[in-house]
């Protein structure tokens, strides 16, 4: 099962490699990893997507908690949460396909953020599954490049990951 682990970690050099190193050393999967500073500049927030049995996820969270730099973490999959991923897709266009791509982007609530005579760049956010669906709807041969941020997430309601 897919798990989204949200981590508050000391914003220090090497913190990212401690997390990444833990995963490679212990043979865990990382599907995606995003990291950025938070409103508190001493902390970074990481969102890490991984897969594994309950036992493995339990070990992953325990091992992560053991890292001295990790302040706090939650497994978002444990509760109701919102998940968003940013994607930019560069698509080769022709006179005939332009209208179709525009309407497809609008159905998916995407935005066209760059236009040349032969290409569009479509920006889209949403759960990863929605982005997958958009890609599947576009003619594969016309896609020049896909850039995805990997998901980030936040829990619903008053609960939150903070100090």
């Amino acid at each position: 099962m897919k798990h989204i682990i949200s981590i508050l970690i000391e914003n220090e050099s090497g913190a990212l490699s401690r997390v990444a190193g833990l995963f490679s050393a212990r043979g865990y999967n990382i599907e995606s990893l995003t990291v950025a500073p938070t409103e508190d500049p001493s902390l970074s927030r990481m969102t890490l997507v991984t897969r594994g049995s309950e036992d493995i996820i339990e070990q992953i969270t325990k091992q992560l908690n053991k890292l001295i730099d990790v302040v706090k973490l939650i497994d978002l999959a444990d509760a109701v949460h919102i998940e968003r991923e940013l994607m930019m897709v560069k698509i080769k266009t022709t006179e005939q396909s332009r209208e179709e791509i525009r309407s497809l982007a609008s159905i998916f609530r995407g935005k066209i953020i760059d236009v040349t005579t032969t290409t569009y760049v479509v920006e889209m956010t949403g759960p990863s599954s929605k982005l997958d669906a958009f890609i599947a709807s576009v003619d594969g041969g016309s896609i020049i490049e896909v850039v995805r941020s990997g998901p980030t997430g936040i829990s619903r309601g008053e609960q939150g990951l903070h100090l």
Partner: peptide, 11 residues
């Protein structure tokens, strides 16, 4: 003392 040692290999 180490939670990660618990149920690591044996439940």
């Amino acid at each position: 003392v180490d939670p990660a040692s618990i149920s690591k290999t044996v439940k």
